[in-house]
């Protein structure tokens, strides 16, 4: 009885995780530009991995396992936003996006202003916040 309940829960977790993978895939296919695809690629993955790890934990039922699964997920939490930010920033700077799809762009105004102010300088493409 108990085993059946756990099996059903596991199946739900696995299905949910797979669904999140599909969400990432469909998002990659259907979204119009790089930055929108980025949303589809990063977020569902995190939830999907959480559900998969939950399924493993449910099936193994041992407490020694919890830390390693947590570490696995925390690594994902730490790395995903950083890589997403790096790719997003590169995409924005190299204009790999469709501006006609933006309803407002407050970063562009700031960049323009900075570029005008530094126009006499040698390199107008350099942004002030470069680290």
């Amino acid at each position: 009885m108990n085993d059946t309940v756990i099996d059903v829960l596991t199946a739900i977790c696995l299905l949910g995780g797979a669904l999140m993978s599909v969400a990432a895939g469909v998002g990659l296919l259907r979204f119009p530009d790089l930055l929108a695809r980025m949303h589809a690629a990063t977020k569902p993955q995190v939830l999907g991995l959480l559900l998969f790890l939950l399924a493993i934990g449910l099936q193994m039922r041992s407490w020694v396992l919890v830390p390693v699964l947590m570490v696995c997920w925390i690594f994902m939490l730490l790395t995903v936003p950083v890589s997403a930010h790096m790719v997003g920033r590169a995409g924005y700077r190299t204009k790999h996006m469709r501006r006609d799809l933006l309803s407002m762009d407050e970063l562009d105004e700031v960049v323009e202003k900075a570029a005008n102010k530094r126009a006499p300088d040698r390199n107008p493409t350099e942004r002030p916040d470069e680290t």
Binding site: A23, A36, K43, P44, L47, S103, M104, E106, D108
Partner: peptide, 25 residues
Amino acid sequence: LVVASFEVFWLSLTRGPRLVNAVVA
């Protein structure tokens, strides 16, 4: 996280290419 994931999934299915985004400061 759960809400946002399903929202993105829903948007990708229904809106797809006609999505309007913004850069907000």
